[in-house]
């Protein structure tokens, strides 16, 4: 059963609500993500955007609402209705998750080659030479020197670790990638190169993605559509260029206006 009806969204949320004790982190979130689309979620810290991402990726359980993912393996599934086993399998094969801090998404104690090869080995790859070749190929695609294949990420710079994390995720050819501030905490020049890399990869691999960021420049560069969150709610959404060039909601207007002109 494949979910390749081109007219179906790859990811849908309806009435998504997540609470922490008395505080509501996100409230009544609705959206559809279409195949090949990159959806940006922007807002200040505390807006609920990271909580939303974690709920979508199955890392947190919402109090209300439903998240539907059109999987290649099982067809459309309710993300939080899945068994833990299936959800864990999906997150290693059809999904990717790029953490803000690469250390959270890498095995720091093993080589880059092992990091990239893990998803392949987890689904049965058993030829060391082939795994190594694929890993080396991916190092090249994320612009890391091939002689770093056997080095551990502890010896990598922050930017290199992030690129390695991206390779580790993309090697399994995921259909949907979640990204949490993928360039946060990196040097401006390093950021630019990684953004370029991401844009290229998303395009060539026809990835769908949900990208959380507080940086409107990143949103402009990478996303097709944008959701603006404030206090747990979506206050505005639409095509990225439209939202950023002609913001309707007062909060969006304030966000856009506060970008320092370069």
């Amino acid at each position: 059963m494949s979910g390749s009806l081109l007219s179906a969204p790859i990811l849908s949320a309806r009435g998504l609500t997540k609470r922490f004790g008395g505080r509501i982190a996100c409230r009544d979130i609705d959206f559809d993500l279409w195949p090949g689309e990159v959806l940006g979620v922007v807002g200040e810290s505390g807006s609920g955007k990271t909580t939303l991402l974690n709920c979508l990726a199955g890392r947190m359980t919402p109090e209300a609402g439903a998240i539907t993912y059109d999987s290649a393996a099982y067809g459309p599934v309710d993300v939080h209705g899945l068994s833990e086993a299936r959800r864990r399998l999906l997150s290693r094969t059809e999904w990717g998750f790029v953490n803000q801090d690469a250390r959270d998404g890498l095995r720091m104690g093993v080589s880059a080659g092992a990091n990239i090869g893990e998803r392949l080995m987890a689904v049965g790859a058993r030829h060391y030479g082939d795994i190594r070749r694929t890993a080396a190929d991916w190092l090249d695609r994320v612009e890391i020197e091939p002689d770093r294949l056997d080095d551990r990420p502890t010896t990598y710079s922050g930017g290199m670790r992030q690129r390695l994390q991206i390779a580790r995720n993309l090697v399994s050819k995921p259909r949907l990638v979640f990204m949490d501030e993928p360039t946060g905490g990196l040097d401006v020049s390093v950021q630019a190169r990684i953004l370029d890399l991401l844009r290229g990869l998303v395009g060539t691999l026809n990835l769908s993605a949900v990208l959380v960021t507080h940086d409107l420049g990143v949103a402009r560069l990478l996303t097709h559509r944008l959701m603006v969150m404030q206090g747990g709610r979506v206050v505005e959404d639409g095509l990225t260029d439209q939202v950023l060039d002609d913001p309707q909601h007062a909060y969006t207007q304030m966000l856009v206006a506060s970008i320092l002109p370069v």
């Binding site: 399998l89 093993v110 090869g117 080995m121």
Partner: peptide
């Protein structure tokens, strides 16, 4: 316990890969 239950043995194969690499 969870890894055995879900047959998630990637981490073991990774350690063998790493041994060959080193």
């Amino acid at each position: 316990r969870t890894l055995h239950a879900l047959s998630e043995y990637g981490v073991m194969q990774v350690s063998l890969y790493e041994s060959i690499a080193r």
